[in-house]
Structures are given as C-alpha cells and as structure tokens.
Simulated assay, not measured.
Amino acid sequence: MKEGPDIALLGSLIGDPARANILTALMSGKALTASELASEAGVTVQTTSSHLKKLQDAKLLKQRKQGRHRYFELANEDVGGVLEAMMGLAAKQGLLRTRTGPKDQALRKARICYNHLAGDLGVRLYDSMIANGQLKELDDDVQLTSTGEQFMVDNGIDIAAITLTRRPLCKSCLDWSSRRTHLAGALGTAFLHHFFQIGWASRKDNSRIIKFTQKGEKQFLKMFPL
C-alpha cells in the first residue's frame, strides 16, 4: 500500500472542470453563494451543491452562514497558493482557455490573489522589498526584517496589529502570470487593504482585476523602487 499524501485525490478534485471553475472564481477572495458558483461553473445549482460538498470534505473550501444564506470561500491561503501555482504551470505549458486581450493585460498587471496583490505590481512589491533589505529570503520562507518593520511604520501600516493575527506574517506565493514570487501572508493582505484605504487602488466589479489610479500607481512605484 502506498503511504503519504494523496496527490491523486487532490488532483481529481481540482481537475474536474466545474470544480476548477468554482475554485478559480473563489480566488477573487470573495465569498460566493451556491447559485453564484453554479453560474461560474456552468452547471445546475444541484450539481454545484454536490461539488461543494466534495470540496468541503477535502477541506479545500469552508462555509459561512449569514441569515438564510450560505457563502463559500477558499479554506485558507495554502489552497490559494496551490491554485496560483497550477495556473502558472498551465500558462507556461500554453494551456490557456482564452486568447489574450485587454482584460488579460489588466489581470497580469494587478489582480487579487485570494487576499493579497498579485500580477506585475505584486511581483514588483516583493522584489523591491527584497532589494531594499525589508524582506529576507530564508530557504523556502520569507521574513520581515527590522528595516522592513520601520518601512511599515513610515508608511502608516500598523505592524503590531498584523502580528497579533494567527496567520503567518509573510509567505511567498508563485505568481501565475509572471511565474515569479509575490508577497502573501498577513503582510501581503495588509498592503492591499492599505492601497484600498488610501485610494490608490480599487477592485473592479465581478473580476480579480485591481485597478490603480494614475496617481496611485505613481505613488506605488515610488514606494517600491527597483
């Protein structure tokens, strides 16, 4: 008998086209209802419910209840990271479902990856912090330095509040479009929320695209020089 992690089971769960569409839709970071996910998956609500149960049983999804409504979201950042890495492999192998276009270019520039910034600007943020000694790479891990802590304070981000969460402070995530690293973890989430709060960027409706204002992008590039 084979022992160890069952990647075949995980692969079969993610590999079903309807379930893959459900998981991809939840990469937006939003919690969605079964009917909304049915539309994303292109199947009936009844069939979607069956898919959702399988994904929940495998702990790939979690459910939240609000009044009479039930919402579904990715179980954690690890699931998001696996999906982002698989998207990167699919793109590298040329396994694309649509031709590239203006929307694709915007998605590659800046998008939400579960709860943090991805795309070209997300990669720039990570590379800049590494180059300026604010982040330090340790084997497969990444760590905020004392210089990085001061950088957070200087830019009005409450590092003390972030460190109180149970989530890892810093995590590296493989970007599917550039196939390079961007910043995940509580710190990655804090940065994205900060950009929203100060008006540099906003979410595009019904999309993973993050739209920066002209002024916001200029300030972002100044904040994260290369």
Rank of each mutant, 00 (worst) to 15 (best):
F195S: 04
A131R: 13
A118I: 04
G4F: 09
L9A: 13
P168Q: 08
D120A: 14
G122Q: 01
G15F: 04
T189K: 12
G29R: 09
A90D: 12
K211E: 15
L183N: 04
V123H: 07
D141C: 05
G94A: 10
D158E: 13
V45F: 00
Q46R: 14
E40L: 00
N76E: 08
I162M: 11
S207F: 02
G188K: 05
R97N: 08
H116D: 02
T147I: 13
R208S: 11
Q93S: 13
I130P: 11
H193G: 07
M87D: 08
S39L: 06
F196Y: 15
K30I: 01
Q56C: 12
N115V: 02
A34W: 00
N132Q: 15
G80R: 01
L23T: 01
P5F: 01
E3W: 10
T189Y: 04
N155W: 05
I198M: 13
L13D: 03
G148M: 02
S35G: 03
Q134K: 12
R124D: 00
G11D: 07
K2C: 06
K218G: 03
A38Y: 00
A201Q: 02
E40Y: 09
S202D: 10
L117R: 09
L89P: 03
E137P: 04
E217G: 07
L13A: 08
T213Y: 07
N115F: 00
L13F: 03
K215D: 12
T98P: 01
F196D: 08
D6A: 09
I210L: 07
L52Y: 02
L138G: 06
G29K: 11
C170F: 05
K109D: 12
R64H: 10
A160N: 13
R111C: 06
L138T: 14
L107T: 05
P17F: 00
R97K: 11
A31C: 04
T47E: 09
H116N: 12
S49L: 12
H182C: 15
Q143F: 10
Q93C: 11
G185L: 07
G188D: 04
K218A: 15
G15P: 10
M223C: 10
N206V: 03
Y114G: 00
Q197S: 14
K211C: 12
A20E: 06
E77V: 08
G101Q: 04
L37E: 03
G81Y: 00
N206A: 13
K54S: 12
R68A: 10
L221D: 11
V79G: 08
K103P: 00
S178M: 13
P102Q: 05
G11H: 06
Q66H: 09
V79A: 07
P168V: 03
S177L: 01
E40W: 06
D140A: 14
E77G: 15
T163H: 08
F224E: 04
K62D: 09
D139Y: 07
I209D: 01
L37G: 06
D16T: 11
T24Q: 13
T213H: 08
T165H: 11
S178C: 09
G122F: 01
Q219T: 04
D205V: 14
A75M: 15
V142P: 09
I209L: 08
R124S: 05
K53Q: 13
G11W: 01
S35P: 05
L89Q: 12
I7D: 08
A131W: 01
V45Q: 11
D6N: 15
L55F: 09
E77C: 03
R97F: 04
L95T: 06
S12E: 12
